[in-house]
Structure formats: structure tokens, C-alpha cells
Nucleic acid binder design. Structure first.
Lengths: 334, 334
DNA sequence: CTGAAAGCGCTAACAG
DNA sequence: CTGTTAGCGCTTTCAG
């Protein structure tokens, strides 16, 4: 089933059929109708492969993310989709599982389709990736991290600054014996940078993380409970738990409430991300909203602007994360 | 940057370059080396558009789902990915937001790329979609619902049966005054079928749903709380809450525990899906595991088998959902 | 407003 | 083991 079939069925040249089907150029209403009805009749679906090759235009936008199990990435994707839906661009998702070798393969694969843009999570890539991205003439938008040298455009928060902000907020509330609960992910650069920013600010006050726990796999909520129990078992005098994501924090919070621990009187807790699901817990967990949806939107807008020729320059957008004190961080209420 | 450039740089014919780059046919080690180093030097990334057009083979597998905000769909996608990762196939995601017009557009778009397969959530589609799918010679796998007439292959659970099973389990525990908490989604056919199966089995015992609540938008956990409060406010004598997903059930459970309501002595609760996050709540919510990951795997296997010519027949796989009684459904422990 | 000719960059099919 | 010849199905470009 090709254009030629429609052409023959309608008695109109292939070229004109093509024009009708793409709404390009002027075509008389009579021919248009002939063509459309023939196409409908035959159930013709154009072949984009051929179209893309001929026009060297591809309406795909690659979105490369580390994971789908962590809701933050689907959320970014929703932001991307919400913008692309207004254009004729289509997102295509690639998942790397936080592995540089997978990232390399996924990016290579994506580039080989010559998409209208690539939106990729993170600003840290191995040399091969960086070289491929830079060498392609596809618009690149790195997202969710701006601490580093972008290849092209970049949209996101500074995780170092986020870590510093949270540390500062915690210290200002008078907390001093702080424990850290995180994920075991040597390749999660954003978590690392956050941690670095956090400890840096603590160090300025002459403080250090008292103890820490890491987990991998399983229900983050459950792990949050377990790690909280473990770290508090080892350190009775902890007065704050800083968690690298909301689920861990929520698990910790639930466990503490069950134990009857005074939150935040005796122990403060904070998570990270500002997940919607925090809404509905017995107590509002303190967190930092990282605006994933908005990040996805901004990134998609940059790609869309490049695709329609509106813009051509690299763009840098720093998203400001917002601390949400919730009920677990503000120790001394006025 | 084309094959021709690599050919000229290496002094090897385009055809042989193509062979080397695809690992096809026999090529001497010497030429292979020449080609590979030239390609590397130039940073050549093959153009799959051209390749696909010439070979009429596309390594993309379309996955069409209603939403990304509901974790069950990313979970299916993970299953798909886990299988495709072992092949040279690549998933491409399309999101419909539960809207038939969007589904139509997404499927049309996907088909126009002539993918190696289409995995689409649900078995209910409008005529246009059904016709497109049936008319394409792309392998189709409908997933997550088998109550109906599939276009081609199908993998999933019977939601009618799931609803009946849950009703039966609840009735066997002696619960009789049952309320329903659901989502406001006239187009969520799976939820509807489940509800139908549920009420059907109740009717056989001469029972009806006592009252119901529906919500749309916002945190499902929070809405679960609010709806629980509302429905119990109206019906003091309810002895069971059947929820159309785990998040609602979890919200209800948290609220009841805070109120000191005896669960499941006075009130039983059940959710649906078997979400990982239930692991970590104060009490294990009863639920029904729908095996999303496995569903994704089976679907991907069907597509992969079609792609490599191993199989050619339509397949029907019924996944058996498993009731998890948790701590909120088993009223009379032995 | 409509059509004819010439590719887009690659690979199938055949020769050697 | 290597090369040549034709396209794949569409769109660009240029003429009417």
C-alpha cells in the first residue's frame, strides 16, 4: 500500500496526492476530495520512513532517561509530552538503567534515526556519548542537572545548590546530629552532587554527617523503615534524617510515628523531589520540589523552537527548586 | 556524513562498508579493520532511515499506553524493555491519556513507521483503530485485558474474572456491607469490567454495593483518605471498602488506622494491582497482583518471535492474577 | 493549481 | 571475499 496506489485509485499524480496528504501547497477542492476518499477507501497509512528519507525531516524527539521505576522520570516525560502534543513532534523514550554503556548504545541508536532533538537526563556522560552528541547536528537538551559543562542546551536544577539549601534550612532549625539515608548508586551523579553540597554546607558549620545507610532494590518505602530503624538503633542521639528521596523519607516517617517518636521535636526528617504522593501521609514530609514536569516542558520547548527554526542558540535554564517545610523540618514554630 | 564518506575514507566499496557495519556476510579482517577505523575516525553514525527504507526492516516496537502517571504502565514497559534488551529491537512509547481520539492518532503515527510490532494496552478500541491495526501487516499484541475479541495476539488478565474473584474472597470472609471507591474514568474499560464482575458475583449472593465514591486528579493517596471519610460518614455500617487501585486503598487504610478503626475486624479493605509500594505501609493492604512486568515480557516475546520469524500465529496468553490477602481482608484467622 | 524527473542513504540481489 | 546495479516510497525542485 503506497502513495502510488492512492494515485492510481484516484487518478491524480503521486505528487499531488502527497500534497493533499501533507496539507502542503494549493490543491483544488475537487482533487483534494478525490484523493482523500481514495486514501480512506484503501486505508492508506503513509510511510514515514520514506518521507523522512526524502525530506530529511524526522518528527521524533528522543528522550533518554535512566529509569522508569522512579516516578520522577515519567513525570519529566509527561512535561515533554504536554508540550510536544501541541506540535507534530513525537517523543521516543530510551532507558539506560544508569549504565554508561547502555547510555552509549541508546544515544547511538537514537542518533541513527536523526531525530529533531535529543533530551537526555543528566549532564555527565562518558567521552563517547559526549562526542556523539556534540558531533551530531541534532539539538541536544541535557536536563535535571546544570552542575557541569553542557554539550548544547540545558534545563534543570543545581543539585549542589539544592544540597546546600537543604543543609542550611536544617541547620537553621537547630538540628545538629544528622544522619543520611540514600540509595546505593555510584552512578547517580545528581544524588552525589546533592550529597556533596549538603556536606559542604555542614562542614562550614563544623559539622559532619553522623552516620549513613544505603539501599538498593525493593520497596523504597519499606527500605526507608528498615534503614531508619537501623540508623536510629546505632545512634540514639540523631536529631535529623536527610533522605535522598521522598519514598525513603516517607518510610522513615511512618516508622517513627509508629514508634511514638516526636517528629520534628525529637527528630526531623526531610526527603527530596516533592512527589505528589506525600500528599496523603499522616504527616507532611519536608521535601524539595524539583519541578520535573516544568523541566520536561522547558526542554521540549527548546527542541520545538529549534525544529521550527524559531531559535538556534544554545539555551541554559536554571530551575529553582523550592523547599517545602511540611511538618517535619520546622522545629520551632513562631 | 554518509556511508559513502566512510567508503571513500577507507578505500572500500560502500557495500562492503555496509557489511562490516552490520556484521553481515564474510569480510576479511584486514578490510574490516580499515572500515571500522575509518568509521570511528569520522564519528560515523549510520542512518537508520535509509537502512529501514532499503531493507523494509525497522527495529522499533511501538508500545501504546494510556498514561505514565499510573505506575502500572511504566511497569509493563519495564517488562517489555527487559525482553527487547536481549534483541536488537527498541521500544517506542506512545501515550493516549485514555482518549480514543489520541489513541487513533498515536496508532496511526506508530504504524506510519512500519514498526516490528505494536503492543497496545487494552482490547477496546474504536473502529478506526481496530481497522488500522487489523489492516496493517504489523504484529499486534493487545495487553492487560482479555475480555473481548483481540485483533491479533493478546496477553493479560480477565478483569471480569478478577472482579468476581475479589468479590468471592470478600464474601467468603463474611463481609456484606460493601462500599466501592474508584476513579472517575468512563473510558477505563478495565476498571469497568472489574466492577461488573464484582457486582455480578455480589448479585448472586443477593447483595449490592451499598455506596460508592469516585475521584479524578490529585494525589490518589489523599483522595483515598477523603473518599473513605466521606463514604464512612454516610454509611456507618459499612464493613468493607473495595478500591479500584492500591493507592486509594492505602489512603483509606491510613485514615482508618488513624481513626482507630479495627481493621479488618470492623472494616476490611482491598486494593488492586499489587503495587510494590504497599510493602512498607503500617499494615499490608489486601490486593490483587496483576503481574504487569510479566505481561510486558510475554508481549515483547511474542513480538520478538514474530520479528525473527520463529512464530507467525496469533497467541493468546491469560495471566492469572493472584489475590494477596494481606492484613485487611482475612477476617477470621484460623 | 498540477505533474515529471531526480534523488534522499542505504541494502537486496547478483555477479565476479 | 568484494563490487555493481537497482531500487525502497516518498519529497524536492523545477516546469508547465
Amino acid at each position: 500500500m503506497t502513495l502510488r496506489d492512492v494515485s492510481e485509485a484516484s487518478g491524480v499524480s503521486e505528487m499531488t496526492v502527497s500534497r493533499v496528504l501533507r496539507n502542503r501547497g494549493d490543491v483544488s477542492d475537487a482533487t483534494r476530495e478525490k484523493v482523500l476518499s481514495a486514501a480512506r477507501e484503501l486505508g492508506y497509512v503513509p510511510n514515514k520512513i520514506a518521507g523522512a528519507l526524502a525530506s530529511s525531516r524526522v518528527n521524533l524527539v528522543a528522550v533518554v532517561i535512566p529509569s522508569l521505576s522512579n516516578m520522577v522520570f515519567p513525570e519529566v516525560l509527561s512535561g515533554v509530552t504536554s508540550v510536544l502534543d501541541r506540535t507534530d513532534l513525537q517523543p521516543v523514550v530510551g532507558v539506560t538503567n544508569y549504565r554508561p554503556d547502555r547510555e552509549e548504545k541508546v544515544i547511538y541508536e537514537m542518533l541513527s534515526w536523526r531525530p529533531s532533538g535529543i533530551i537526555v537526563a543528566g549532564i555527565e556522560h562518558n567521552d563517547a556519548c559526549r562526542k556523539m552528541l556534540a558531533g551530531s547536528d541534532v539539538p541536544i537538551v541535557e536536563i535535571m542537572d546544570i552542575d557541569g559543562e553542557p554539550v548544547d542546551s540545558v534545563v534543570g536544577i543545581s543539585h549542589r545548590r539544592a544540597g546546600r539549601m537543604m543543609a542550611q534550612a536544617i541547620l537553621e532549625q537547630g538540628f545538629e546530629r544528622i544522619g543520611f539515608l540514600g540509595t546505593q548508586m555510584p552512578l547517580d551523579h545528581r544524588a552525589r552532587k546533592r550529597f556533596e553540597g549538603f556536606t559542604e554546607t555542614m562542614a562550614k558549620s563544623g559539622l559532619e554527617i553522623v552516620d549513613q545507610e544505603f539501599y538498593a532494590g525493593g520497596s523504597a518505602l519499606k527500605k526507608g523503615r528498615e534503614m531508619t530503624e537501623a540508623i536510629l538503633g546505632r545512634n540514639e542521639d540523631l536529631d535529623f534524617l536527610y533522605c535522598s528521596n521522598d519514598m525513603i523519607g516517607a518510610g522513615g516517617l511512618l516508622w517513627c510515628l509508629e514508634q511514638g517518636i516526636d517528629i520534628p521535636g525529637k527528630l526531623g526528617i526531610a526527603g527530596f523531589n516533592g512527589t505528589e504522593f506525600l500528599d496523603g501521609l499522616p504527616r507532611r514530609l519536608a521535601t524539595m520540589d524539583t519541578k520535573r514536569f516544568e523541566t520536561g516542558q522547558r526542554a521540549a520547548e527548546i527542541v520545538a523552537a529549534r525544529a521550527d527554526g524559531t531559535s538556534t542558540e544554545p539555551v541554559r535554564i536554571e530551575i529553582a527548586p523550592a523547599i517545602d517545610f511540611g511538618d517535619t523540618l520546622q522545629r520551632y514554630k513562631p
